[in-house]
């Protein structure tokens, strides 16, 4: 196991634990405003300082981690649940009209960056965390579909698949029995990377107001609130920014480390 893998896993675990802890305990209640105590720099009472409403930033970060992780994880789930079967199907029917249709569909979704999808959804349904999940999730679908198809196609050329076909096994059965186990590592690695991209995308969406709405805490919204205060109270902008940076860095190191550990030949797509 590489150093990167250990550091990445440790960083990721820290944020997951913080998020989990926030369900039962946070240092301060973030729903009570304490205006006189606003914009205080880090101190013994407030380790990471307070924001413009006097709320404890550490508590906000813990609650925000919850939002980030939930949104990114569900978005990866959507991407995998829809993308992997599509990719397997396209590979199994390689060269058919269905394959062509799936791939063209993928290309089309790639023309809609998750932000544009979020804009479309928000324009009609209004902003919410669910919309962020859907927007990022839709964008993850072609990522996993392409990756699955790309990894499955060379496997279909291998003799062991031919042997399975000689044994009368159907394409669906071969996909599940032979293809899927051979691409699991790849999916784990790419899933980690998409998770990290999901954290970034969620932050961006809530920063521009298209993600989770108040009173739900989110790192992106904390940054949006901090924007005009950056010169007076830099910590309000620095803390959430570093939270995002460290979480994403941790997940990326974890993904790369997992790749080297599981199978160094895996190529991840990073877009």
């Amino acid at each position: 196991m590489s150093r990167g893998l250990i550091i990445g896993a440790a960083l990721s675990v820290v944020f997951v634990v913080l998020a989990a802890l926030s369900f039962i305990w946070t240092p301060f209640d973030i729903e009570t405003l304490n205006i006189p105590n606003k914009l205080k720099p880090p101190s013994g009472a407030h380790w990471l300082g307070t924001d413009h409403f006097g709320r404890d930033i550490l508590s906000m970060i813990m609650m925000g981690a919850r939002t980030s992780i939930a949104v990114a994880l569900l978005a990866v789930g959507i991407g995998m649940a829809v993308g992997v079967p599509l990719g397997l199907l396209a590979a199994a029917r390689h060269g058919s009209l269905l394959d062509e249709l799936i791939m063209r569909g993928n290309d089309l979704v790639f023309a809609f960056p998750s932000l544009v999808i979020a804009i479309l959804i928000t324009a009609v349904f209004g902003a919410s965390a669910v919309n962020a999940i859907i927007a990022i999730g839709i964008f993850n679908v072609p990522v996993f579909a392409r990756l699955t198809r790309g990894a499955a196609l060379p496997l279909w050329e291998r003799d062991f698949i031919l042997a399975a076909r000689v044994c009368g096994k159907s394409a669906a059965r071969i996909s599940v029995e032979h293809i899927l186990p051979n691409i699991t590592n790849l999916m784990i690695v790419q899933g980690t990377i998409q998770f990290s991209l999901g954290i970034l995308a969620e932050a961006a969406l809530s920063y521009i107001g298209l993600g989770a709405q108040p009173p739900t805490a989110s790192w992106g919204r904390m940054l949006a609130d901090a924007q005009t205060l950056v010169s007076i109270a830099p910590h309000t902008a620095l803390v959430p920014g570093f939270a995002i940076l460290l979480m994403v860095l941790g997940l990326n190191l974890l993904g790369d480390g997992l790749r080297d550990w599981l199978d160094p030949r895996i190529r991840v797509a990073r877009v």
């Binding site: 291998r158 003799d159 062991f160 042997a163 032979h178 186990p181 051979n182």
Partner: peptide
């Protein structure tokens, strides 16, 4: 080398 599923 390609005749067998390496996972089984």
């Amino acid at each position: 080398y390609s005749s067998f599923n390496p996972r089984h």
